[in-house]
Design a protein around this nucleic acid. Structure first.
Length: 581
RNA sequence: GCGCCCGUAGCUCAGCUGGAUAGAGCGUUGGCCUCCGAAGCCAAAGGUCGCAGGUUCAAAUCCUGCCGGGCGCACCA
């Protein structure tokens, strides 16, 4: 029985015995205290209940102390501060945690809080009009790590990519490709005109079209070559995007095409549902006040969705002036489709520049599903690129920007992934090409990997020292773990014992970056232990003349490696076993 | 003008969904290599948690209003 349940049950009894008024223990928690010096576990129950049952918190704390002391695993308990009850557990409780780690491997920390429920994580979803950039990289990593985290927490996860292959942007793309096609045929095209994508990356698309169709389209009209250019451009761009993603270990389960959603009539369907609920009307929007008023603003009636009824600031247009659907209308249909397919929660990972979009989207989802579902949008703030402290100049208009491919080539996927998770998603992130490959403690990637490598190194040395010993995880799990009784041993064990709790709360908060911070903390504790062993022989992992303790310490070291690997797996980073200069 | 996000040590950032004396890295100062990897560790100094109210046993955390910075603001995606 958990301490939480034990305590609530005992408090119920006490309440009856002492004739307390009605009380609620929901906010009474049993948790490890923030400061380990306070003990192994602590509860705020006395403070939560004091007001409800009209008793002095410290006096109530004394009674709770007695209750806890009766628990077989508790060795000591005391009231502290304003009414906390701190208590200590038998060392065996902690030591046995290592056995669990060794038996579970990297599955340690898995939980079932998701209870198999479905969650759809949509991420990247970059326009297929160019290569993925540094900004996309962040969303890609955050989304993928979140998906892995939810999986570890017991959710059934669908990883999805929405391809914006309809609308004006892809037509612009197609026209740009047509220019490159004519260029490939030897024509002098000069400067790429306004309203086209200037990037060099389209040259190879034009080239490919030339190689396939020769001069077939040179004399054709736009209505004939446009679909051709569009198709080949989309195909090649998506291929490149998939390849980039694959090279950082990202593979989506589902790619959904915006055009396919439209073609399937899903937009009409969603529209008529909303219309049936009287959520569509024709009206005139006010222009935005203040400095940002567009100069080409024309006041005219539009087909609007009553987003304001669901918390948005204004009602939102569903049709453009030419009568076609807006992006938003398509997106409503897409989310309706996604909801029907997913049968569960929807999470979108978006760039910060889409911040103004989330209210209308959740309004639409709430409206369509009649409140049965909602979409949670996580916004990733911008990534600022540096090289050794110098900002890397980027200009979208000139077509010069740092691509995901650049980063992979320069620092590799593991570094990229780790660094992208070293900030909370709504915090801007600095990415410095020079710093992220530095081999020192200020680089968290290195610091954590180094800890893992050191663990592996100890295990390699153990083979030398005890050639006849069975050092498999199963064997180490049977070591005499009660020998791990120093404060240093227990500190490390406590940290690892908290891993499952940590994973759960990170999953509940949908914050994968926390994993990176946990791993740094674990690495720090391990490095500290290591260094202490240099001075105090008894704190070394391997003691030639003390085989039982060595085996127990190996169980500890191996556990550190496994927990680290377990965390890195969520982040999608490969643990390294050796690092040499 | 409106909406969303951010404001915590000199700098870059955590802070486990309201808990005890607010933490880490860099930088500064001073220590630790006959011994498992010193690419590491230990210690010291450094804070009105942007400001002002409010909620309660308890606020960096929740609410309101300001101040400062970022992003966005019909028919783009």
């Amino acid at each position: 029985m958990s301490f939480q349940n034990y305590l609530t049950a005992e408090l119920e009894k006490l309440g009856q015995a002492e004739n307390w008024p009605e009380f609620d223990t929901a906010r009474a928690a049993v948790e490890p205290p923030r400061d380990a010096a306070h003990g192994d576990m602590a509860t705020n129950a006395a403070m939560v209940l004091a007001g409800q049952v009209k008793q002095n918190p410290r006096a109530l704390g004394e009674k709770i102390t007695e209750i806890l002391k009766n628990h077989p695993d508790v060795t000591a308990a005391e009231v502290a501060g304003p009414g906390f009850v701190n208590f200590r557990l038998k060392p065996e409780i902690w030591q046995s945690c290592l056995k669990t780690v060794l038996e579970s491997g990297t599955a340690y920390g898995d939980s079932d809080i998701g209870r198999g429920r479905h969650v759809n994580v949509e991420y990247v979803s970059a326009n297929p009009t160019g290569p993925l950039t540094a900004g996309h990289a962040r969303g890609a990593v955050v989304g993928d790590a979140l998906a892995a985290l939810m999986q570890k927490a017991g959710y059934e996860v669908i990883r999805e990519y929405y391809i914006n292959d309809a609308g004006a942007q892809v037509e612009k793309l197609a026209r740009s490709v047509y220019l490159r096609y004519r260029e490939a045929l030897g024509e002098e095209i000069g400067e790429i005109p306004e309203g086209h994508y200037p990037g060099e990356y389209l040259k190879e698309v034009g080239e490919a079209l030339k190689n396939r169709d020769c001069t077939m389209w040179t004399e054709a009209e736009e209505k004939d070559w446009l679909p051709v250019c569009k198709e080949i451009a989309l195909e090649m761009m998506m291929e490149e995007i998939r390849r980039d993603l694959q090279d950082i270990g990202i593979k989506h389960d589902v790619f959904t095409s915006e055009q396919a959603i439209i073609d399937a009539g899903a937009v009409d369907e969603a529209f008529s549902i909303l219309e049936g609920r009287d959520l569509i009307y024709t009206g005139v929007l006010e222009p935005p006040k203040g400095g940002q008023r567009p100069d080409d603003w024309e006041e005219r009636p539009q087909t609007l969705f009553r987003a304001t009824e669901f918390g948005d600031d204004v009602d939102r247009p569903l049709k453009k002036s030419d009568g076609s659907w807006t992006y938003f209308a398509n997106d409503i249909a897409y989310h309706w489709d996604k909801y029907k397919r997913t049968q569960g929660a929807l999470i979108n990972i978006l760039g910060a520049d889409h911040g103004g979009y989330v209210k209308r989207l959740s309004a639409a989802v709430t409206a369509l599903t009649e409140g049965k579902a909602s979409v949670e949008c996580k916004l990733c703030q911008m990534v600022h690129m540096f090289d050794n402290g110098e900002p890397v100049r980027m200009s979208k208009r000139a077509g010069t920007f740092v691509t995901l491919r650049d980063i992979i080539d320069k620092v590799g996927g593991d570094v990229l992934r780790f660094i992208m998770l070293t900030r909370k998603n709504d915090q801007t992130l600095e990415f410095d090409f020079a710093k992220v490959v530095e081999q020192s403690k200020e680089n968290p990637v290195f610091y954590v990997q180094y800890a893992h490598a050191r663990c592996c190194s100890v295990l390699r040395n153990a083979v030398e020292m005890f050639p006849d010993a069975d050092l498999s995880d199963a064997a180490l799990a049977e070591a005499n773990l009660s020998l791990l009784e120093t404060e240093e041993d227990l500190a490390l064990i406590r940290l690892m014992a908290g891993w499952p709790r940590f994973v759960r709360s990170a999953a509940e908060a949908a914050e994968p970056h926390r994993i990176a911070f946990y791993l740094q903390e674990l690495a720090a504790a391990f490095h500290a232990f290591w260094t202490k062993g240099r001075g105090e022989t008894q704190l070394r992992f391997l003691l030639e003349d003390n085989r039982p303790l060595s085996m127990a310490r190996l169980a500890l070291v191996r556990s550190v490696a496994l927990v680290t690997a377990s965390g890195l797996a969520v982040m999608g980073v490969q643990p390294v076993e050796e690092m040499h200069a």
